[in-house]
Design a protein around this nucleic acid. Structure first.
Lengths: 139, 139
DNA sequence: GAATTATGTCAATAAGGTTGACGTATTTCC
DNA sequence: GGAAATACGTCAACCTTATTGACATAATTC
């Protein structure tokens, strides 16, 4: 027997995600950045010293697409590159102090929103939410 | 006391959402459509006979942006417009049979993914997930 | 030394979004 | 009944983020 699609959940996820990224968008606009900059900033924040190749793997975009955004972040001094020690072809990515402050600001803003939503459910519901989201990634 | 941002949750939501929309993207590609078409298709599916103005409200985009996508969906016979009965300025939106089939196909594909993820957590965790996502929307 | 790898870059193109301006038909309101 | 507001369509210019394809350079590996 086939069952009806779970419209409620589909739409909840759509609107929830829009609300989630909208939070960061407001901050980014002050800097003239978009979501693409946010993603780069975030993953460099979280994985300091990562290579271009690794970042492309995470973001699942082409290097040509990354190039423009990364160039802007480097020129405005939010990200810096460092030659790889063992492999000098690599351009390891790091945040500048300004980049660190912005990345943190964005993460804090999104965390506040997430925590507010978590606060509406029982504490033992938190692990269900995390587990559900992680399952969505694997499949 | 300030606490560290919840990086794990932030990234889970990012990757989970990418996985969620990626599911539909594969289907849409066969029709030469993108996510913008999906959103229009979905909300017309869910709100048959809605007005252009209402759809713009839901999607939070401009009418010029909607125009192109809607035009394509009408020209390829997935959506049709019907003059409003009480207000003849309105162009009420409806799915054609083909539009209905596609919208359903997309919803089913996404539901399968959502259900698979829900299946990895206890049944009483489902309401926490739904509640959490709805709380994200309100705030 | 040759092949591979990591990265940079130029160019053309596409999807999806914006602002601003203007046109038309219809409805509402005084 | 005429003026104003509303619902929608459309033209034009522009922005962001992405794509594919081609080619260049430097460093590493075999």
């Amino acid at each position: 027997m086939k069952q009806e699609p779970d419209f409620e959940l589909i739409e909840s996820l759509f609107f929830a995600y829009r609300s989630f990224v909208g939070e960061a968008d407001k901050i980014l606009a002050h800097y003239g950045f978009g979501r693409a900059h946010h993603r780069v900033l975030h993953f460099v924040y979280r994985n300091p010293g990562l290579t271009i190749a690794t970042l492309l793997d995470i973001l699942q975009i082409t290097k040509q697409s990354l190039a423009r955004v990364l160039k802007e972040l480097i020129e405005t001094d939010f990200i810096m590159q460092q030659e790889g020690e063992d492999d000098r072809r690599q351009r390891l990515l790091h945040l500048t102090p300004a980049g660190y402050i912005l990345a943190e600001k964005l993460s804090v803003a999104q965390s506040i929103k997430l925590n507010a939503a978590l606060a509406t459910i029982d504490a033992d519901g938190h692990k269900y939410v995390r587990c559900f989201l992680k399952s969505m990634i694997k499949s």
